[in-house]
Nucleic acid binder design. Structure first.
Ligand SMILES: [Mn+2]
Ligand SMILES: [Mn+2]
Ligand SMILES: [Mn+2]
Ligand SMILES: [Mn+2]
Lengths: 218, 218
DNA sequence: CCTAATTTTTAGTCTAGTCTAAAAATAGTA
DNA sequence: TACTATTTTTAGACTAGACTAAAAATTAGG
């Protein structure tokens, strides 16, 4: 069994490895966990001792297969609980992350199995992020950022890059959610803003918004 | 906010106060939490500092209204989660306690409100124990031990005193659960055993079994 | 290629929560 | 009451996990 702190470190490294596609720096972990670099050095050394990460001084850290398995399991639990909170308890998608941060550490394999079944074995969480299966494999979709979509093309919203409550609430206000059909009406190359069509409405969104929304375009 | 350890101490004191109807000794807490008495002294002093318990050296500890409120909330969460696990995830009633020990520490008032609603605001957990309401009040029923029921009387099973997995599985095997109608057919005064009728069957149970089952007799 | 800025690690300290061993207080009994 | 057994508290030590400050290594720019 692993401690809460260990699980959080492994999860952070998991996400950072995915983001940077490689070795993870001490500072990157520190920033993600809002901790000091010295604390991170301490912990990765302990994790290396337990063969959960491989770590070379000054070079960086990455997960071993064992560490990756544990991290993926925590992510699986996090996302399953988020589905539970939204689908069963009627939370809004911007309200669930903090609670899932706690629930992801509940230890019981049987619980995950039953929760998964209860939820109908969902493949994506409320933010469109894929839920790893029991083996830790994730289904990777060929999504892209809305900002990269060409004029006149249409895509289906499949996820968000950042999921701050502020951002998610903005999307709610604009009636954009997972599954929404979004058409790029025109793009302003000066500031990266674009006019999009969602349902019956057309409106303008800023570059920042478009850079944080994933869509799937066929 | 309170730490996991603090919540566990408060909950233990809450249960012990109820059991002994008064001041709780350091040793009693130590035994319940499987900790050493010296650790308990340490913690109750800290809790007293925070006005969650009142404590007098060598005399004992009891909850302040504030401490009682927190403890009741933890118990409420524990029992609501047990209902969730049994009613929604189809766990058996002997499998849920350990998981609820973890879930009871999840911090989110909104979560409790929604979970309670989702479950239909249950008043009792799967073991027949009352679920405190938001204010921490519990509905106290006039239940009694099956061992104290007179010959030829009939009662409805409303709870168990001990809820070890072994005991609960024994009851399952005998098809005794919350809501079962139990009639005392005859009592053997030599060893305290009794013959009871449950549904279509009559069989003998030992004194130990009868002393751990609560029934309501009108 | 050398120096300066940045990153990372080490050394030392702190808190929460636990323990053991010893001391102190209380309770039980002759 | 006096002695003993039990309970409780204190003193001191330990671990996990965090931090600050300083040292060491790496990277970047001229
Ligand atoms: Mn999340
Ligand atoms: Mn998510
Ligand atoms: Mn329980
Ligand atoms: Mn219970």
């Amino acid at each position: 069994m692993f401690t809460l702190a260990e699980e959080n470190y492994l999860k952070a490294i998991y996400h950072l490895e995915f983001k940077f596609q490689g070795e993870v720096s001490t500072n990157a972990i520190a920033e993600k966990l809002e901790a000091k670099a010295s604390s991170v050095t301490d912990m990765v050394q302990k994790l290396a001792e337990k063969s959960l990460v491989s770590y070379t001084k000054y070079k960086g850290t990455h997960l071993t297969p064992e560490g990756r398995k544990i991290a993926a399991k925590v992510v699986r639990k996090h996302r399953l609980w988020e589905v539970f909170l939204v689908d069963k308890l009627d939370f809004q998608w911007d309200e669930v992350h903090e609670i899932a941060e706690q629930l992801e550490h509940i230890k019981s394999d049987e619980l995950i199995v039953r929760l998964d079944k209860f939820l109908g074995s969902p493949k994506f969480d409320p933010h469109g992020d894929p839920i790893p299966d029991q083996q830790g494999n994730i289904k990777n979709t060929k999504k892209r950022l809305l900002a990269e979509v060409e004029n006149k093309q249409r895509g289906i919203c499949v996820g968000v890059k950042e999921s701050s409550a502020d951002y998610l609430r903005y999307l709610d206000k604009k009636k954009i959610g997972i599954g929404s059909e979004i058409t790029v009406v025109s793009k302003e190359y000066f500031d990266g803003s674009m006019i999009i069509e969602v349902g019956p409405k057309q409106f303008s969104i800023s570059k920042k918004i478009a850079e944080n929304l994933y869509v799937q375009v066929n």
